[in-house]
Design a protein around this nucleic acid. Sequence first.
DNA 1: CCGCCTGAGGAAACCGGTTGACTGAAACTT
DNA 2: AAGTTTCAGTCAACCGGTTTCCTCAGGCGG
Lengths: 346, 346
Amino acid sequence: MPEQPVRARLVDVAEMAKVSKATVSKVLNGRQDLSVRPETRQRVQEAAAALGYRPHSGARALAGARTHALALLVPALDNPTYVTIARGAYQRARELGYLSLLAEDFDGQEADESFNDLVQEGRVDGLLIASARPGHPLLDALSRTPVPHVFLNRSVEGSGRNVTMDVARSSITALDHLYGLGHRAVGHIAGPPGITPSEDRKKAFLRHAGELGLSASPVASGDFTEDGGVSAALQLLRPADGSTRPPVTALYTSSLAQAMGAMTAVRDLGQRIPEDVSVVGNDDLPVAGHLSPPLTTVAMPLYELGTAAVEALVAAIQGAPVGDVVVPTEPRLVLRGSTAGPGATP
Amino acid sequence: MPEQPVRARLVDVAEMAKVSKATVSKVLNGRQDLSVRPETRQRVQEAAAALGYRPHSGARALAGARTHALALLVPALDNPTYVTIARGAYQRARELGYLSLLAEDFDGQEADESFNDLVQEGRVDGLLIASARPGHPLLDALSRTPVPHVFLNRSVEGSGRNVTMDVARSSITALDHLYGLGHRAVGHIAGPPGITPSEDRKKAFLRHAGELGLSASPVASGDFTEDGGVSAALQLLRPADGSTRPPVTALYTSSLAQAMGAMTAVRDLGQRIPEDVSVVGNDDLPVAGHLSPPLTTVAMPLYELGTAAVEALVAAIQGAPVGDVVVPTEPRLVLRGSTAGPGATP
DNA sequence: CCGCCTGAGGAAACCGGTTGACTGAAACTT
DNA sequence: AAGTTTCAGTCAACCGGTTTCCTCAGGCGG
């Protein structure tokens, strides 16, 4: 017969420590509004530990306290960028006594589902939203049923609760590197219109291209996927009439997947990387080192973005005023084999 | 002042429909132990819809009913294999009235955390475990505090609750393809020892290699990562003393990442793909099409694995006897550019 | 006409915590 | 010595559902 080591409850701890439920609750939650003798406090803590006591999340949530859970909404989990962010969020949440759940929000389609399941059913205390874009159904739901939240990576203008990285700086870093190698005609593969970090990266790219006096700095947009990278790259690399060589000697892409697509496109056009065309990707992830050639990237502080977003959200839940946050860590160039001077010999 | 459109509660619905809480609860949960007039039923349903009523998950959980949530524990989220599985699980869970949460369990390190946060705190009704391996701390926790669960992909011998795919068939599919192209010396890159699907794939590989009478069928193990693929490939490709050519003309890998690593290794040895060495990967995912050359893979029914696991778990939660399940969908070869006959001309 | 059954729904206990109001004893004032 | 604080904790209501046991009204058979 399977023994039933029933979960220890608050009363069990109380009984064992010879105090009341109230005292146990207050001690374990570290509340100040109660004075306890150190020895009592210790008895309670020992009893809780001995019984392996874990408060029932439903009961806590019900009693008006919080669930101590957050949810991170990402647009696509097969984009490892978000996995890194999620790890940072999970870890930091844990340190702050929260559990971070992960939900995929395929560009808005599942937003209402998630919102209902997680917020309306009272499973979480707040949302980390990485899937925002203009007109996203979530924005609507949030205005109808307010719940603590922050936007990360993709910001929402005027929300006053954006947690972002210095994406402008990433364009500058990439461009400076390519310029230093001698490139004077550089193309940029941007993300879909309306997605903030992508727009910002693009603006910074164009501005800095102007500052450096590049002879050409065309931009093409595409999804953050491999396919998006392929088609955008083909636009940028198509030789001008009468020429046989691509109009740019280097590409800087908005995502890692786009960089992979761009590399495919370059090769399909019979060009070599990096001899004919250099490629720099955005976001450094393990795969980058395993492409051929290994991809030079701009490493963004993704993990820190996750931790910073959690910190901001938890502060908001605890009543602090929110505000826009920019993760202080600077983008960093990771030099690999996909970049070289224009016309380099193999 | 921000209006507070307080969540509708059960009583609100009851009031609006002019019935009692009990009736609303029973109607909405579709219980049979109550007879209601169709018109009453309808009034209740309309009221619930009008108020946008969603039951508070904590309250439900407390009241002894279930949380209607499951958790899927995967060993690594940056492995897109698990993302596909997770999507299948999420979708099917939803259809069955459950919410599927996702938790990363870095090969056991976070298992206890997750178990405590999710199971002990009563957040979920059951676990989908994709991160099992011999000696995993979770197995221990499960025996101490029983909770409905199934193992997927990585099975646990003797548990009688394994949901798996026909991995043996995947080896056969890959090998038949390579054999058909003329390969007689094929190497296999397996996963770490002790991980069931990897062991099974390896055994099937060796058995079928024997059946086909291959002249060589060496196996090397490595992590499921790119690096694991590189080092295993280097072992398999090292020319025998006195030879200048690799001892095998094709490689079949246990994961997609390993295949990417293998491709890197092949190139680093100055060999061409597929002219000198063909490569077949396991699991078909979008990236496979964007490598150079595009990777031939054996597509496994990952999504279906997720759905099947959820079905098994939900059945278990509802008291049905569990049992081992093999997803019926067969592995399928996805032909791309990384395979050709041995010694093919470019 | 009375008792019994059945259909439709209601009353209230309960799940496991949290929380603000309250109490008894000891210590301190005046 | 009596009143007032402070300390250390307790009491009991409450959160929002679910579930078991009832009740009530009407129909039916005898």
